[in-house]
Design a protein around this nucleic acid. Structure first.
Lengths: 289, 289
DNA sequence: ATTCTTCGCACCTAGGTGATAACT
DNA sequence: GCAGTTATCACCTAGGTGCGAAGA
């Protein structure tokens, strides 16, 4: 594998996988002029997760009446893995060929058909539909960091004219890109695979001075969300680690400050629980307007 | 320092500090028969945080247009530390003598005066007042894990009789103790010191089968919250690390399933924003009752 | 005039309160 | 009856929606 992106279509999604290149060198464009996959280059540190795993599975289980650390996982703690003894180093290798399944794919497609729009505001706005994914093929014992970012899909500026999106010139300069690290990171493959990974708290903004860590986008530009799986037990190791990246073309969208296409507005109202007040049906006030 | 607790009164609070003992050995009671300070014994790993700190302060700062990882801190990212160059190993040692200041101490004292009660429910209940603390004296560059637990304050069962709390026998057996790890853990000393550390999401329950990781308590028993600072960059290192523990006697409380003392009820209503509906003053419905 | 952005708003979801009555 | 627990409720906080008028 060289230092550049290797796109490979894998049925469900487009996957890019590579090891970081040399620090500061711009890597080949994943989509367009924008950010490389990993923030800093350098050598990767593969399989660094083993040395930190305690031999006793201690922190998650009661042992001799000692306290347990249990609040890291939102749901019920994983079952006790002790019955199946840990293989020694050199034993059977654990699986590590991640696959990702996009949740609510059909809903994403309904939006995509009309051209998905996402509102961006100064105070930050969530995406709808929310980006949710189901992972398989992770090493159950290894620890992973899962992240998302949003990159330019092309170098155009758009306008909505005569009920159509049209190219309206060259893109404005891109904002510094930010990685949204899933708040459960780092966690074991077992933990990630046990539930849907939800990125709904990621927020989009057009405020170039944003101090919350939100993703800063240009209005009337087209974007592509990306999902990354990194085998690493510590955030600090991220820049030196291998990213496995997954792109779903149906999650592409145009950032707007106000919806342009009425069909998109209606899909949002019909499907986002927080917009229930605008529905025609039911108890909403919509009928009176 | 030996393996047992060394209580030392430090003006504001009672501090215990020790290194873990041998695995499985019950340590001297911090308050009563209950849990030792650290879950698993063994050798400690002091100062392990240095080797993981990247030389470039990379993950938090934009370098040559690379993306930054910024969503780990809720507030604004810390200022760029680059101007003050990092001292080489062997240079001036950073401060590491943590002090803790309990927030809303006066409110805690008002409750304590009447005998603080905390409701416990099957579905989990927060504490009020919330446990919040301000830390100083941390090594700004080192990484820490901050935690809380709640331990028995004595071995008595209580009853509320004639408007007084009275001992009503020997304590029931204690539930397995759980450590509540602050969700921002691990984070740098700089990050912890930059804001009040809020443990308001810790929940108390009387459900011995609880699967959420809440703190399980016995009703009509007296408890003491404890706050712990651990210099460690990874949750997995917790069992082998040194705990510095801080106890504030005014945060002691009795767990109840329904309030016993009307004075406590009124203090809760007057001060907890979520109970505003029960206040006599203002827009509340209380006047009509 | 046109296009795009901002702000306050009514209307929701989600969930934290003590009161109350029923239950054990 | 008594003492303690549970479930349900009205009433809040906190914050995510698109709307529509006003602003740039």
């Amino acid at each position: 594998m060289d230092n550049f992106l290797e796109p490979c279509i894998s049925g469900d999604f487009t996957q890019y996988s590579r090891t970081s290149g040399v620090a500061g060198v711009r890597l080949g464009p994943p989509l367009f002029p924008t950010a490389p996959l990993t923030p800093l280059g350098s050598f990767s540190v593969p399989g660094a997760q083993g040395s930190l795993t305690l031999g006793h599975d201690a922190p998650r289980h009661h042992r001799r009446g000692a306290p347990a650390f249990v609040n890291r996982a939102a749901g019920p703690p994983p079952e006790d893995p002790r019955p199946s003894e840990r293989p020694e180093a050199g034993g059977a290798a654990e699986e590590d060929d991640p696959k990702v399944h996009l949740e609510a794919r059909e809903l994403w497609r309904q939006f995509h058909k009309y051209g998905t729009e996402m509102v961006i505001t100064k105070s930050g706005r969530r995406m709808f539909p929310p980006f949710r994914a189901r992972c398989t093929g992770l090493d159950r014992r290894a620890r992973y960091i899962l992240l998302m970012d949003v990159v330019a899909a092309d170098d155009c500026r758009y306008k909505f004219h005569n009920c159509r999106w049209m190219v309206a010139g060259k893109a404005d300069p891109e904002m510094p890109k930010r990685m949204y690290i899933h708040p459960d990171s780092p966690a074991t493959g077992e933990q990630w695979m046990s539930k849907v990974v939800n990125f709904n708290k990621l927020k989009l903004t057009n405020n170039i001075s944003d101090k919350h860590g939100f993703t800063i986008l240009n209005s009337m530009h087209k974007y592509q969300p990306r999902f990354h799986i990194v085998k690493a037990n510590d955030i600090l190791k991220l820049p030196y680690s291998t990213f496995k990246s997954f792109l779903f073309s149906e999650t592409e969208f145009i950032a707007v400050t106000a919806y342009q296409n009425d069909k998109i507005t209606q899909l949002k109202i019909d499907n986002n629980p927080f917009a229930k007040g605008f529905r025609d049906t039911g108890n909403g006030r919509r009928e009176k307007r």
